[in-house]
Every structure is written in structure tokens, then in C-alpha cells.
């Protein structure tokens, strides 16, 4: 018998949509945690430098360094907003600071914690700034979120995770978004035309 020429199995649960096709806000995901590959490592989240030191009395210097690394990363990679209003909308009242440095002036959320791994490893430790939100409008509310928008499973009381090593990969520097709308003008130009055409699909 010839081999079957159609997909053998389709995960119907994945395809079922209670709310079909609503644009997602920010993907709430736990991909770093849920992946089954076993190169994952233990990571712990601290909300202050002291917490780290109390937890690791024999690694005081590493705590200092990991905290500083996270702070530096935060300055470089944290989400940025043109207005305090936009920032607070995402992170909550009084959760944002004004920054004016050589990269410009903007608002960014305070670092709410830092995630470290392999603190006692002789080769190197990993450290990453984390944020959380107190805003009722945000999908980050009461969750840990990284600079590039990963939201961890579980609420902020959960401090221990197993993560893939790339969770600690340096994030690209993001400066403020200066403009929007540089793509899509051909649609406006061409879709005013025609009547038989379905509402402006650019597929073919």
C-alpha cells in the first residue's frame, strides 16, 4: 500500500478557537519553560540585592556583580515609552522612571527583579533584569516578564524556574521607536480600486 499522502495527525485542540482571530496583545507564553529539551538550567529570581546575598552567603561578590549586570542590561534593553502615561498603562502607576541619557529621553519601567543562574559556577554566572506590572490593563500584571516581552508562567510569587540557556542571551538594544507606518502604503494606494476584490487581501 502506498504511503499516506495527507497529514497523519493534526492537533485539533491547537486549531480550536473559542475567540477566533482576535489580534493577540502580547503573546503570553512560557516557551522557555515548557520546552522539553533538557539543556535547561535552574534559575532563581531575586527582588533585591540583599535577597540574593541572604540566599547565597558564600557568593556575596557574585550577587553584587549579577545585580550590577542586570541593572546595566536594564538601562540598555528595557522597554521604552515616549510618555509616562504609556509606560504606566503597561506597568502601573508610579512604576516608571524618566531617563535622559545619550540614547535620548524616555520613560522605562523600574527593574522589579533579576534572574540569576549558575551563580556559583566558576566559569560564569547568568543574570537578566525582570519587570512586572501592576496595571489592570496589562497582560504582564503580577507576572515576571523579560525585556523582550517573555512572560513567565505563574505569578510573581514564583521565584524558581528551569529555563533554557538562551533565556540569558543578551537582548538586542532597543531604543525608542521613532516612527511607524513605513510599510503598508501600497495597500492604501491600490485598494481604493476595484469592486470585485475582497476587502484588500494581499495574498494571491
Amino acid at each position: 500500500m502506498a504511503t499516506q499522502k495527507r497529514s497523519k495527525h493534526i492537533n485539533l485542540r491547537r486549531m480550536r478557537k473559542a475567540f477566533a482571530l482576535k489580534p493577540l496583545a502580547v503573546g503570553v507564553a512560557g516557551v522557555m519553560l515548557s520546552a522539553c529539551s533538557d539543556d535547561r538550567q535552574d534559575a532563581r529570581i531575586y527582588t533585591s540585592l540583599d535577597e540574593c546575598k541572604i540566599d547565597n552567603p558564600d557568593a556575596i561578590a557574585q550577587c553584587d556583580a549579577a545585580y550590577q549586570t542586570a541593572l546595566d542590561e536594564a538601562v540598555r534593553t528595557s522597554p521604552r515609552y515616549n510618555s509616562e502615561y504609556d509606560c504606566e498603562h503597561e506597568f502601573g502607576a508610579n512604576q516608571c522612571q524618566y531617563v535622559n541619557n545619550n540614547q535620548g529621553s524616555f520613560f522605562m519601567p523600574f527593574m522589579a527583579g533579576f534572574m540569576v543562574s549558575q551563580l556559583l559556577s566558576p566559569s560564569r554566572y547568568y543574570s537578566q533584569p525582570l519587570y512586572t506590572s501592576y496595571s489592570p490593563y496589562s497582560s504582564y500584571r503580577s507576572r515576571w516578564v523579560t525585556a523582550d516581552g517573555y512572560v513567565f508562567n505563574g505569578d510573581i510569587r514564583k521565584r524558581n524556574y528551569r529555563v533554557r540557556p538562551d533565556a540569558f542571551k543578551p537582548k538586542p538594544t532597543v531604543t525608542r521607536t521613532m516612527s511607524r507606518g513605513g510599510f503598508g502604503s501600497s495597500v492604501r494606494a491600490k485598494s481604493s480600486w476595484g469592486s470585485s476584490s475582497r476587502s484588500g487581501s494581499w495574498g494571491s
Partner: peptide, 18 residues
């Protein structure tokens, strides 16, 4: 496939300072 997916409209794509 285990990839985290995010969505953005083409018209909403922005350009950052860098």
C-alpha cells in the same frame, strides 16, 4: 513547532532609533 509567536500589523511596524 515550539516557537513563540507574536503578531503585528504591517502598518503598525515601527522603526527604532537604532
Amino acid at each position: 513547532a515550539g516557537i513563540e509567536d507574536k503578531f503585528v500589523y504591517v502598518e503598525d511596524i515601527g522603526l527604532s532609533e537604532n
